[in-house]
């Protein structure tokens, strides 16, 4: 495993830890989109089904279990925890996320590496992950107060796929890996969606001001 891949995974893990920290310590999920979190549950559930069929490494298995358990528990907290669920910005989080699922699934049926259940589900998870942040970005834009933990959560979540892009370049150049257009293009789209957010995040960080996105 190269350094970009490891950094990407750690950033991904860090983003989830930041979100859990917010939920546990502040007992709040204000500014967090349940729609995006539900999409992540679907992304991880469809991508990591192979933990039951294929073994890669201890690291791989543990990380997959961590992502599955944490994504399910975040949704549980937001929906059912008696304090946390009252802080959910239900009225602002109106993105119709179901509308993302069907096109991604149809695209996965049409464009995939191999027409098998495992490959189609894997491909679907890549397409869906690329756009899963959209409800969260819309909610952030509507939020007047973005607290630090929420801002950092989205930043780390965006940085993770950006680091994967470097990992793929490295693997292609140094390890002579095959051309893998499906994850590459999905990852590029995913990272590009954060461009605007990154710009304002870094700007506010430099000026030491509170993060606010223009409406």
């Amino acid at each position: 495993m190269n350094v970009f891949r490891l950094a990407g995974d750690m950033t991904h893990l860090l983003s989830i830890m930041v979100l859990l920290l917010k939920i546990h310590s502040m007992k709040s999920c204000a500014g967090i989109s349940l729609k995006t979190q539900e999409l992540y549950v679907l992304v991880f559930a469809t991508r990591y089904l192979d933990i039951f069929t294929t073994y890669f490494s201890f690291y791989n298995t543990v990380m997959k279990i961590v992502f599955l358990v944490t994504s399910f528990s975040i949704v549980w907290y937001m929906r059912h925890h008696k304090v946390v669920r009252q802080t959910y910005d239900r009225d602002q989080d109106t993105f119709r996320h179901h509308l993302l699922v069907i096109p991604c699934f149809l695209l996965a049926l049409l464009i995939n590496h191999r027409f098998t259940v495992r490959e189609v589900l894997w491909t679907f998870s890549l397409y869906l992950e690329a756009v899963a942040i959209l409800p969260q970005l819309v909610l952030l834009q509507r939020s007047r107060n973005i607290d630090n933990l929420t801002g950092n959560y989205v930043f780390f979540l965006g940085a993770y796929r950006g680091l994967y892009l470097f990992n793929w370049i490295y693997r292609y150049m140094a390890e002579k890996s095959q051309l893998r257009w499906i994850p590459w293009i999905s990852g590029l789209v995913q990272t590009a969606l954060y461009a605007d957010f990154f710009y304002y995040y870094i700007k506010s960080w430099k000026k030491r001001e509170k993060l606010q996105l223009p409406a």
């Binding site: 891949r5 192979d50 990380m63 992502f67 590496h113 994967y164 095959q178």
Partner: peptide, 10 residues
């Protein structure tokens, strides 16, 4: 198996 190359990623 070639398919497994990309499935080792998260």
């Amino acid at each position: 198996e070639e398919d497994n190359e990309e499935h080792d990623e998260l």
